[in-house]
Amino acid sequence: MFRLTRWLAPTATARAHCDLPCGVYDPEQARIEAESCFRIMEKYQANADETFRARAIGIKEERAELVKHHLDVLWHDYFKPEHLEAVPNLHELFWNANKQVSKVKASVDPADGQKLLDLINDVDAAWKATGGPGKTRVAGRPG
C-alpha cells in the first residue's frame, strides 16, 4: 500500500501562496541609507583622489538603490488607501522622494542628499500620523 501511494504521489508541488509580511515598517531604514548617500557626497567633495571618488560613486549608487527599495516597501506594503485621509499628499510625497533618490544617484552635491533626507522626514511624519510606531514596531527597543 505504501509503495502504491508512493508511486501515485505527485512529482511536483504547486503553490497558491500569499504574502507573508512581517508587518514591521519604519522609515528609519530608508533614512539610514539616505544618510550614507549624504555622507558619501560630503566625503567625495573633500577628496580629489580618483580611485576614492570612483569607489564613492559606486557605494552611493548601491545605497541609493536601497533607499528606493525601503521607500517602495513602505509605499506598497505599509500604507493603505485609508491612510490617504490622514495624509492626502501621500502619493505625491513618495513620488517626490523616489524622484529625489534618482537625483541623488546622479549627483555628488550634498544639498541633493539633504533634500532627500528632508523628504524622508516627511515620510516619517506620515508614518507617525498613521500610527506606524505603535502598529509596526516590536516593543522593547532601547530608547
Binding site: 497558491a16 501562496h17 500569499c18 504574502d19
Partner: peptide
C-alpha cells in the same frame, strides 16, 4: 487570480494573495 480574497487571506494571518 487567486480564488481567495485579501480579506480571507488576512483572516488566516497572511498578506495579500500573490
Amino acid at each position: 487570480m487567486s480564488d481567495a480574497s485579501a480579506e480571507l487571506t488576512a483572516a488566516a494571518g497572511f498578506g495579500e494573495p500573490i
